[in-house]
C-alpha cells in the first residue's frame, strides 16, 4: 500500500499581529513548523503502514525552506519526501493549491490513500483536502477521527460530525482528512533523525508536473485577497468584585436578559 501525506509548513504560532505603523504582518522570528493537523495525518499514515505494509510519502508545496518540514516527517518514519517549489506557484489559493498537489499525486502514480490534516492552522480553510479529491475524481472521508478497518480495496472510517459521528465505507484509492482525536503523533526516533539528515528530498517544479499554466499560482486562483486588517480589539471587560455571595447576583442581573433572549 502506498500512503501519500500532504503537509504544509506554517508559522509556529497564530499569535500574528499587524504592525499598526506599517500595516504589515509581524512574523519575524516566528519559527516554522508542520501544521499541527498534518502531524496527525503523518502519524496515521505511519500506523497504517505498520498495519498493511507499504510506504509513506510526504508531499508539500511551499518555499525551499519547507524542506525542513519534509525532513521532520521522515524523522518520524516517513519513507520519502517530495517538495513542490516553483515561483510559478506564488499566489496560489486553495483552488490552485489543490490542483498542484493533485498533479503531483498523479505523477507519483500508484497510491492507495491520501491523508491530509483537516485544515491548516494559518489559513483554516479545510478546502484543500476535498479539492485534491475532486481534482483526482476520488471519494473522500473528511474529519476522520478513527479508522475502523482497512484492506487492499476498502477503508471504513469514522467521520466526526457536529452532533456525533458517521461510519463511512469507501473504496481505495481515497482521500482522508483527519482530526486531532485520531491519534497522538510520535516523536522522532534517533534512527529517524539520522535518516532525515541523509534523505534526498525530491523537488518538482511546475514543468515537472505538466501543470496547465492557467491553473497554477495567481492565474489559477479565482480568489484574491484585497485587504488584511486587525480585528477590532475586544473592549476591556468589567471585573466583578466581592465575595461570591455578592458577585453571583451581580452576574445574574447582567446575564439574565441575555439568557432569556438566547433561550435555545
Amino acid at each position: 500500500m502506498r500512503y501519500v501525506v500532504c503537509i504544509k509548513q506554517v508559522p509556529e504560532t497564530t499569535d500574528v499581529k499587524i504592525n499598526p505603523e506599517t500595516n504589515t504582518l509581524m512574523r519575524d522570528g516566528v519559527a516554522a513548523i508542520i501544521n499541527p493537523f498534518d502531524m496527525y495525518a503523518i502519524e496515521e499514515g505511519l500506523r497504517l503502514k505498520a498495519k498493511t505494509g507499504g510506504t509513506v510519502t510526504v508531499l508539500s508545496m511551499g518555499p525551499p525552506q519547507a524542506d525542513a518540514a519534509l525532513r521532520e516527517a521522515i524523522s518520524m518514519g516517513a519513507d520519502d519526501g517530495i517538495l513542490l517549489s516553483d515561483r510559478a506557484f506564488a499566489g496560489s489559493d486553495t483552488w490552485a493549491t489543490s490542483y498542484t498537489l493533485a498533479m503531483a499525486i498523479r505523477k507519483i502514480g500508484a497510491f492507495d490513500i491520501i491523508l491530509c490534516g483537516k485544515q491548516a492552522s494559518d489559513g483554516d480553510t479545510a478546502q484543500v483536502g476535498p479539492g485534491i479529491a475532486i481534482h483526482l475524481d476520488l471519494p473522500q472521508i473528511t474529519y476522520v477521527r478513527k479508522i475502523e478497518s482497512i484492506d487492499e480495496k476498502t477503508i471504513v472510517a469514522e467521520r466526526l460530525m457536529e452532533n456525533g459521528y458517521e461510519v463511512i465505507q469507501a473504496p481505495l484509492p481515497c482521500v482522508l482528512t483527519v482530526v486531532k482525536e485520531i491519534n497522538e503523533p510520535r516523536l522522532p526516533s534517533l534512527k529517524g533523525k539520522l535518516a532525515a539528515k541523509k534523505a534526498v528530498i525530491t523537488t518538482w517544479k511546475a514543468a515537472d508536473l505538466q501543470c496547465d499554466p492557467k491553473c497554477i499560482g495567481l492565474e489559477g486562483s479565482p480568489t484574491k485577497v484585497v485587504k488584511i486588517f486587525t480585528p477590532p480589539a475586544r473592549q476591556g471587560g468589567e471585573m466583578l468584585k466581592g465575595e461570591p455571595s455578592e458577585i453571583v447576583p451581580q452576574l445574574i442581573a447582567k446575564l439574565k436578559d441575555a439568557i432569556l433572549g438566547a433561550a435555545n
Binding site: D15, V16, L25, D122, G123, K224, V226, F229, P231
Partner: peptide, 11 residues
C-alpha cells in the same frame, strides 16, 4: 485567519 488574529477581505 491565523486563528482570528488577522481578518482578510477576499474577492
Amino acid at each position: 485567519a491565523f486563528g482570528g488574529n488577522i481578518m482578510a477581505t477576499i474577492e
